[in-house]
Design a protein around this nucleic acid. Structure first.
Lengths: 247, 247
DNA sequence: ACTGGCATATTGTCCGACAATCCGACCATC
DNA sequence: GATGGTCGGATTGTCGGACAATATGCCAGT
């Protein structure tokens, strides 16, 4: 990872002003002295405080905007501090993975690691969760007219499950994986006729295990479910090292 | 998540020019018609093509730069298309999780899901990997003078392990988790005297299992290792729902 | 209290300018 | 021929100023 381990000097790079400005504001946000909802000073005011031109401030603001640290909720005019929306972060992660030429098998392995534990957590968490949404997505998988709709319902199933687990880290990890797996799943459903019914059986069992608060059972079913997914993929005759693509 | 489900109309928001420009370039990159390494046209040229002012182009470029889609490798002047560096994406994810007030226990659960499978994969992958770096980080943990160094060596251990697994998704997932867990680990090591030696024992066993290509054993040891971590944390008398902070 | 209108502030976009510096070409030297 | 120096043009970083569109806040009127 460090190809120039023998380099004696760091390349000295005086950062441009727009980056220094954005870092300064970013630090304030990360240190929580600027908190979500707080409005930022106006561009002219920022320019005055940093003693730079407004254009420079604007470039800095665009960086923060792109990072999701500031935003314009409600289509307003002034920028306010915000936290990166989970969906935003997830899609960024998805993009990064896709550009990294991640293969199906890598995603599947990650899925195999994450999903079963997530199911177990969803089953064991004491919070009196509402299982209706989960059941709804199962129904959506069943009643979906085309493969497209079925696939997105399956993704939704995993997302809801992660939400039930109450674990934000797992939620954040799950979304990019299912999102990237979706096209593969779609092809699989197209080619393997019994695929959908097998998915439904597994989902129902998982739901059942969760509603009965049996973590081990939920975990086991989920593991089987994920493994089944891989089998279906092989059955569909697609190479495991196929690189995933964006939608 | 959709508080205005009864809204009849989407708020029509004609996006500002700088966003349209950045989206246009972004699309080209995501579609791979602009590929990493390709130099972008100059700002003036882009301004001409999009028929906007150079300032507007610059704001768009700052967005892409912040997204890691373009960069300036080697401190050059011209921007070239690049893929988001994994470290960059990981730190963004770390930030997002930290701002989301993720708790220790959530991170730990994610770790428990990811790390054992990662260890198993590292042990079973047929590639003739070099285990020396892994052994080195263990040595670093042992010889570390202060808690700070020990902690960063432990993080490094997990990162190397993920690298050995050859799974980019797991690598990407591991980094933010260990990074956010680091401060907790640090406090734990400070307060639990035998903590470090237990870590070392586990790490050696994992290394041993990997070098002997015993996935199950590696997985089991890693699970024990992670569970041990939690125990140490409780022993240190820190609440499990403590929110993690950045560095 | 709600509404509508008005002045002001703020953003989005443009123009033009200039210093710093990176790049490539050209040239001298060994 | 390879290395190193010089130079001019191209490109970026930053600045100042300008103006239209519109969000915001204030005030009057009902």
């Amino acid at each position: 990872m460090a190809p120039e381990a023998d380099a004696m000097f760091e390349p000295l790079a005086p950062q441009p002003a727009y980056r220094r400005v954005s870092s300064a504001i970013e630090q304030k946000i990360l240190k929580r002295s600027l908190r979500p909802g707080d409005p930022l000073p106006t561009e002219t005011e920022l320019a005055r405080q940093f003693a730079v031109n407004r254009s420079t401030v604007r470039e800095a603001l665009r960086q923060l905007e792109s990072a999701g640290l500031v935003g314009r909720p409600g289509g307003g005019k002034r920028l306010v501090v915000t936290r990166p929306a989970q969906s935003e972060t997830a899609s960024r992660l998805r993009r990064a993975l896709a550009l990294d030429e991640v293969t199906f098998i890598e995603l599947w392995e990650a899925m195999l690691a994450i999903a079963p534990r997530t199911a177990a957590l969803a089953a064991q968490h004491p919070v009196s969760e509402d299982l209706a949404p989960l059941a709804q997505t199962i129904a959506a998988v069943e009643s979906a007219r085309n493969a497209e709709a079925a696939v997105s319902a399956v993704s939704e199933f995993f997302a809801r499950l992660a939400a039930l687990s109450g674990n934000k880290v797992l939620m954040m990890a799950m979304e990019p994986v299912t999102g990237l797996l979706a096209p593969s799943l779609r092809r699989m459903i197209d080619r393997v006729p019994q695929g959908r019914s097998r998915i439904l059986v597994a989902q129902r069992c998982i739901l059942e295990a969760i509603s009965q608060r049996k973590p081990d059972e939920a975990e086991a079913w989920m593991r089987r479910h994920v493994e089944d997914f891989r089998r279906g993929y092989e059955l569909a005759g697609i190479a495991l090292d196929t690189r995933v693509a964006l939608r």
